[in-house]
Design a protein around this nucleic acid. Structure first.
Length: 583
RNA sequence: GGUCGUAUGGUGUAGCUGGUCUAACACGUUUCCCUGUCACGGAAAAGAUCAUGGGUUCGAAUCCCAUUACGACCGCCA
């Protein structure tokens, strides 16, 4: 007898069938009983008549919840009044002839027929194999599979080839803390796990691989966050030879559009994606990863500062505001919460001017306002009726940052962050350098391997802070999905770029020996990016917790609560690699 | 490295301005009853040193301190 899946009962009416799965639930009626049998396809109801004493005994002694059973029986159509409309298989049930318990379950620590959010996460992680039995988690695993499968197909169909790059490699001087792997053959030396295959993918460009991709594991020894998995994660590492920034955007946009439309019901808001210079993004949205699902842009209102004599405004570099509709949705508590968050972010406070439905102005600044200012508010800033403006005065950097955060909160308050839409955008023209107060030197703002706009000439002649890079981010709904860049493939320019950031020529030549040597043998101009698998899945599924989209995540303390990693190792293991523990 | 929050039977919660708390409720578990349930129903029972240690007090689940565990955030994440 062939085994069928639970949902296949629909096509096997009146037939003898074999089913195997877990007991999701049971209902004992003394002379008969029901079992909800769950397998990978779904749930079907089993009917067990206790007239068969063998069945009755097995049911009563061994059929605990979540036990694994095998049953033979007949698929029967239920009488009209017995149909369960909530169940896909609800028109049928299986009348059981034989019942075998393949594996009896202990009493389970938590129910698996819920979405699991109610259970303490540490307990869920400890029993992850049980937790994953819930429908929501099975759907997640399926989605993740579909995501990876779609990605591989899309890239292959567009001429990319996947190449695995080494997992045991060397430390890189920039960026995150490395995970170290001690070497047994070379005691005292270490491999490191790659933070990203950055140099390898560039070497593949030199090697003549025109279009490379890899679902690449990346390792960074930094503290996790709810949107950043501890230690390890995956990127869709991508690099293309002979491309430029605009060509790259046009080539990759369809991937995001298609994966969104194929795997979700969400609409892609902008096609093509807007290209927004970094400076504009900061200026208008106070963020380099703006949520473009709604408008409400930051507006300059320095006029107010110049015409209101208030000590609090003295000496402030910038004054900017957000003009927000639906002022009636902002009660006193909401406004004061926004003010508290502004202060929490380092601001002095949050001023507001509200114009009610009758055109009356209300504001803590009211005593300082006059007719000229009212004219300015109405004619220049277009503060319409039932609008409220939130004002921040501070340094340019802090003003835009705070208003950027307030803008997102307003988006939430007014329900403007529509879950049915994804607003992808490219943020372009990132500055090459920024001044580091800590290090007292210029430092790379993003990727040191980016080509500076204007090339060597710009590096030699311009103030470092005025140099932009062919460096871009792809963002969506306020999330950064990836950084990327057109790379600097000119050895001399790369060395010069590092020099500005305080690295000596010899040092750079030593650390990037492989890459720089390779560049001497004919390197195509190239560029790429590496969207995070997890970030993108979180975006597509509206899932704020990254641990919910991993089969086996580490805890917020980077521990595996089920397997017990990290753990101590034996003395002989340490001896093998020549290490001594000293803590 | 830092700030904050949480911890009560197997699970989720209530109690937490100290005193019939000898800790309540729901789900789960066990036993019994029930011939069509599907969140089955009915009856009964078992199951908690209230995270751990210390302190305050006549008296601590409740207040204080420390520790541990878990979580959020800051730093960090080219």
């Amino acid at each position: 007898m062939d085994r069928i899946l639970a949902t296949d009962v629909i096509n096997n009416e009146s037939k003898k069938v074999l089913l195997k799965g877990w007991i999701q639930n049971k209902r004992d009626h003394n002379h008969f009983a029901f079992i909800d049998l769950r397998d990978s396809s779904g749930i079907v109801q089993l009917y067990i008549n206790f007239d068969n004493s063998l069945l009755a005994d097995t049911f009563k002694s061994d059929c605990s919840i979540e036990s694994v059973i095998s049953v033979e029986g007949t698929v029967v159509r239920r009488a009209e009044e017995l149909i369960n409309k909530k169940l896909d298989t609800g028109e049928f049930e299986v009348k059981v002839d034989t019942l075998t318990v393949l594996s009896k379950s202990d009493t389970i620590p938590f129910a698996v027929d819920t979405d699991g959010h109610e259970i303490n996460e540490a307990i869920r992680l400890k029993y992850r194999y049980l937790d994953l039995r819930r429908k929501r988690m099975q759907d997640m695993l399926k989605f993740r599979n579909d995501f990876i499968f779609f990605t591989r197909s899309w890239y292959q169909n567009h001429g990319f080839i996947e190449v695995e790059t080494p997992l045991l490699t060397v430390t890189s001087p920039e960026g995150s803390r490395d995970f170290l792997v001690p070497s047994r053959l070379h005691k005292g030396k270490f491999y490191v796990l790659p933070q990203a295959p950055q140099q390898f993918k560039q070497l593949l460009m030199v090697a003549g691989v025109g279009k490379y991709f890899q679902i690449a594991p990346c390792f960074r020894d930094e503290d996790p966050r709810s949107d950043r998995h501890a230690g390890a994660f995956y990127q869709i590492d991508t690099e293309i030879a002979f491309t430029n920034q605009e060509d790259f955007f046009q080539e990759m946009e369809p991937f995001f559009i298609e994966i969104t439309e194929k795997l979700t019901n969400k609409k892609v808001k902008f096609k093509p994606f807007p290209r927004i210079p970094y400076d504009d993004a900061i200026d208008k949205y106070g963020s380099d990863k703006p949520d473009l699902r709604f408008g409400i842009e930051i507006t300059d209102c320095k006029y107010l500062k110049e015409n209101i004599s208030l000590n609090a405004f003295d000496g402030m570099e910038a004054m900017k505001c957000l003009i927000v509709p639906n002022a009636d949705r902002f009660d006193r508590k909401t406004i004061s919460d926004l003010g508290a968050s502004a202060i929490n972010s380092g601001g002095k406070g949050l001023a507001y001017i509200l114009r009610d439905e009758n055109g009356e102005f209300k504001s803590p600044l009211k005593n300082y306002l006059n007719d000229n200012i009212y004219q300015y508010l109405m004619n220049e800033l277009h503060l319409e009726r039932n609008c409220i403006m939130f004002i921040v005065a501070d340094s340019y950097k802090l003003t835009t940052k705070i208003l950027g955060e307030i803008r997102l909160k307003i988006g939430d308050i007014l329900n403007l962050r529509n879950k049915d839409e994804i607003a992808y955008a490219w943020i372009v023209d990132f500055p090459m350098y920024e001044w580091s107060d800590d290090l007292k030197k210029y430092d790379f703002m993003h990727n040191p391997f980016s080509m500076p706009q204007g090339g060597m000439e710009a590096l030699q002649q311009r103030n470092p802070l005025d140099i932009y890079a062919y460096q871009y981010d792809i963002v969506a709904n306020g999330l950064e999905l990836s950084s990327g860049a057109i790379r600097n493939h000119e050895s001399e320019t790369l060395i010069k770029a590092f020099e500005i950031a305080g690295y000596k020529k010899e040092e750079v030549e030593e650390k990037f020996k492989g890459l720089l040597t390779a560049f001497r043998y004919g390197v195509p101009p190239h560029g790429g990016f590496a969207p995070g698998v997890d970030r993108t899945i979180m975006l597509l599924r509206d899932e704020p917790d990254i641990r919910e989209i991993y089969a086996f995540p580490l805890s917020s303390d980077a521990k595996d609560l089920m397997m017990g990693a990290p753990s101590e190792v034996s003395k002989s293991q340490l001896d093998d690699v020549g290490l001594k523990i000293n803590v």
